[in-house]
């Protein structure tokens, strides 16, 4: 089987190089830019000292060293993980549902994860249980969306799925709001969480989320060829030896697990899952063998760039990062919609 690649391989190679360089640039900016002025050289020496088995004297005061390593570094690592995960999951959802609008938000995954995490917070659970609670809520949401879309009868079109997702998402969001009102002592915490935040990133959050993200990405990458086959059609896939129903379930479960885990730590950061895979598609073609890995790299860079804006635009204050991704993402999304209409 060979999937036609509409884009020459040199273009794809250039996309990888561009994505990689952007990510590197964003990582460096991420640790050097902040409300407190610390020289870029000293900041990078401090990182080198911590990461590599070298002893480098950064010349920073103990407090400035802590700002670099305890505040900025985990924030950059978590941000990159969140961006990579949301973008890759978005690409996978679009493939598995054969629906260009599918993303963690429109399917109700984010709302379900939000409800799960809110319920856990309201019950006084600790931070390390949030990914599990969020995953439970997200699975519930995807299951409900899938069920209602099927219940709509034989016409299981793209629109049916998205409409079911929107209905489920709205319902879960209403339940979440109700829970918030019930636990008003923790309401502020939940509200800041809803807008999406990276500002309180810690190494322990990185460690909590990492296994979920690694497993999820590994499964999705293993299935990227299957996604290409599925995109041709279910019957064709079956003749090529792929079990469509099982493959779909595995891909949905993996994408949902990863999305729920990052949403549980950073709150609702929208549009990454839809903007990044579409942008990647425009330059690097329609094959998921390219879309998924490139979405991962570009998604990480995109989120770090959004975070950089979030913390510099109204410095020394900070915008919720979800506001920035929506501000950049929504117009981009509108452009994509227009192009699809036109073509």
């Amino acid at each position: 089987m060979s999937i036609p690649a509409a884009v020459p391989s040199s273009m794809r190679r250039r996309s990888y190089i561009f994505g990689g360089l952007s990510l590197m640039a964003m990582v460096i900016l991420g640790v050097t830019v902040g409300p407190v002025r610390i020289g870029a050289g000293a900041a990078l020496r401090e990182i080198t000292d911590r990461v590599l088995p070298l002893s480098v004297d950064s010349g920073l005061s103990e407090q400035d060293a802590a700002i670099i390593w305890q505040l900025r570094a985990p924030r950059v690592v978590l941000g990159a993980m969140v961006g990579a995960m949301l973008a890759t999951a978005g690409g996978a959802y679009q493939g598995v549902f054969r629906n260009p609008l599918a993303d963690p938000y429109l399917l109700g995954v984010a709302a379900g994860a939000g409800l799960g995490a809110t319920a856990a917070l309201a019950a006084g659970a600790g931070a390390d249980t949030l990914p599990v609670a969020a995953f439970a809520g997200a699975v519930l949401a995807v299951g409900a969306t899938y069920y209602f879309a099927r219940a709509a009868g034989g016409r299981r079109t793209s629109a049916t799925l998205i409409l079911a997702g929107v209905a489920v998402g709205s319902f879960l969001a209403a339940v979440q709001t109700f829970l918030q009102q019930q636990s008003s002592d923790r309401i502020r915490e939940v509200f800041t969480w809803l807008l999406g935040r990276l500002s309180a990133s810690t190494w322990s959050q990185v460690v909590t989320v990492l296994p979920y993200v690694v497993v999820s990405l590994a499964v999705l990458f293993a299935y990227r060829r299957v996604l290409d086959v599925l995109s041709v059609g279910e019957e064709e896939a079956a003749t090529l030896g792929v079990k469509p129903v099982r493959a779909r379930l595995v891909i949905i479960a993996a994408a949902t697990l990863g999305s729920a885990a990052v949403v549980s730590m950073t709150g609702l950061i929208g549009f990454v899952g839809i903007v990044v895979p579409h942008a990647v598609r425009m330059v690097a073609g329609v094959s998921y063998r390219v879309i998924l890995p490139l979405s991962m790299v570009v998604g990480a860079a995109f989120l770090l760039a959004a975070d950089l804006l979030a913390r510099t635009v109204i410095s020394p204050g900070e915008l919720p990062i979800g506001v920035v991704t929506a501000f950049v993402g929504a117009p981009f999304f509108a452009v994509i919609l227009r192009r699809r209409e036109a073509s």
Binding site: P35, D64, I67, L71, E318
Partner: peptide
Amino acid sequence: QLSEEYVISQD
């Protein structure tokens, strides 16, 4: 609202 960085750097 202060940033965490600012509070730490002010010690």
